[in-house]
Simulated assay, not measured.
Amino acid sequence: MGLEEFWFVAIAVLFTGYFVLEGFDFGVGMLMPVFGRHADPEMGEKRRRAVLNTIGPVWDGNEVWLITAGGALFAAFPEWYATLFSGFYIPLLLILVALILRICAIEYRGKIDNPVWRRRCDLGIGIGSWVPAVLWGVAFANIVSGVAIDENKKVTAGFFDLLGPYALLGGATMALVFALHGAVFIALKTSGDVHEDAVKMAVRLSIPAVVVGGAFAVWTQLAYGTSWTWIMVALAAVSLIAVVALTARVREGWAFVFTTIAIVSVVVLLFGSLFPDVMPSTTDVAYSLTIENASSSPYTLKVMTWAAAFMTPVVVGYQAWTYWVFRKRISTTHIPDSIGLSLGRSK
C-alpha cells in the first residue's frame, strides 16, 4: 500500500469514526422532543434533560473526528478538498451552520431558567441534528455517484443538481440509521421509564431503517460497487436485522454494537465503491479526481504519517477513557427540579 492509498483509508476511518460517534449524538438530538412529551411539564423537562445528559460529556469530543477528517483531507488530498468544498459549498455551509446552532443550543440551554428559552434551544438542537444527518447522506451519495466536474477540477453542478433520487435516498438512510443509533444509545445509557420508551422507539425505527438502508445499499452496490463490497452490503443487512431482534429482546448493548457495525459497513461500502477515485466526474471520466492526481507530495504524506502515528493513540486513548468515566446509566431521578417550573407549580 502506497501513501496515497494509506491516507485514503485513513480518511475513510476518520469519517467512519465520526459517523459512528456523532451518529448517536445526532440521533439523540432528533429524538429529544419525542422523549420530552409528558402530561406533567416538570417530568417532561426532566426526561429531556436526562436524554440530553446521555451525550453531555462526549458530544464535543465526538466532533473532533470531523475536524481531524477535514484537516487530513486538506493536507493529504488538497485537490479533493478544494473541489469538494467549492462544489458542495451550500450543503456544507448548511451543515456548518446547523452544527453551530446545535452547539450553542446545547451549551446555553441551561443558562436561563425559562421554558420558552429551553423550547427554542430544543428546536435548535433538533434542527442541528436533522440537517447534518440528511445532508451528509446527500453529500456522500453525490461523491460516490459523481458530479459534473470540468477540466479545471471545478464542479459545474448547482445545488439542486445534487438532490437526485439516489442522493435523497442517501440522506434518508443516514437520518434513519442515526435516529435508530441514537434510540439504542439512549436505551443503553438510561434507566426507568426513559429506558423503556427508548427500547420501544428503537423497535419502531428498526423496520424503516432496514427497508430504506437496504434499498440504498443495494442501489450503491449495483450501480457503483465492486465484487468485494457485496460483503459490506450483506454485513449491513445482517446487522440491521439483528438490531430488530435485539431491541425487541431488550438487549440494547448488543443492539448498539450492531448499529455501529451497520454504520461502519455503509461507510466502507461508500469508500470502497469510490476507490480509486475521490470525486468521479460525470462530464468526462478524464476529469475525475483520483488518489494520484489529487494527493499532496510524497514528503507531505510522510510527515503526516509520522504525526498521525504519534497523535492517534493519544486521542483515541483519551476519548476511550472519557467514555469509561461516564459509563453509568442516567434516569429522571438523577435530574433536579427546575427552579422555574417548581415556582410555577407552587403558585
Rank of each mutant, 00 (worst) to 15 (best):
L93Q: 02
L168T: 08
A141G: 13
V325C: 00
I103M: 08
I11L: 15
L246I: 05
F74T: 06
E292D: 15
V264A: 12
R345Q: 12
E292W: 14
C121G: 08
H334M: 11
L93A: 11
E151S: 15
F275N: 13
F160K: 10
N62D: 13
R327S: 15
I67C: 02
M32G: 00
Y224V: 07
W136Q: 08
F159L: 07
E107L: 12
M32V: 15
L180Q: 12
L168A: 03
I11C: 06
G182F: 14
T16W: 11
D150N: 15
V238D: 05
L162I: 06
W306D: 01
A320M: 10
L246P: 08
A236K: 05
G317F: 06
A133E: 08
V155F: 07
G71T: 09
L289P: 14
V138F: 05
T322Y: 02
L274A: 06
D161M: 04
F15E: 05
T260Y: 07
A139E: 10
R109M: 10
L99E: 01
Y318K: 00
A217D: 06
L188G: 01
R329Q: 14
E292M: 13
A262K: 05
F258V: 04
G225R: 02
F8V: 09
G272E: 09
F85R: 03
S191Q: 12
V257D: 02
E196R: 15
F310G: 07
V155Q: 02
E252N: 07
D197Y: 01
V194W: 03
K46V: 02
F77Q: 04
L341S: 02
M304K: 02
W59G: 00
M279V: 13
I291L: 11
A242T: 12
W130G: 00
S346G: 00
L188K: 15
G124E: 07
N152C: 02
L176K: 03
E252M: 14
Y323A: 03
G164Q: 09
F74V: 08
V28N: 03
L169C: 01
T260E: 08
L84C: 05
F8M: 08
P280N: 13
L94N: 01
K154G: 07
F275I: 05
R48N: 07
F256V: 01
L222Q: 10
K302N: 09
V244K: 00
A76F: 14
V194Y: 07
M311A: 15
L176F: 12
Y287N: 15
L52V: 04
D122C: 00
T260F: 13
A202S: 14
P165N: 11
N142K: 09
M279N: 05
G272P: 13
A172F: 08
G214Q: 04
S288H: 12
L222C: 05
K328W: 11
K302D: 10
L96P: 01
V138P: 07
V218R: 09
M30G: 02
G71H: 06
E196S: 12
M304R: 00
V138D: 04
T229S: 11
G44D: 04
F77H: 08
V199K: 09
E79S: 14
T190G: 05
L188I: 01
F310L: 15
E196M: 08
E42C: 00
L246H: 08
L123A: 10
G214D: 01
S288Y: 11
L176V: 04
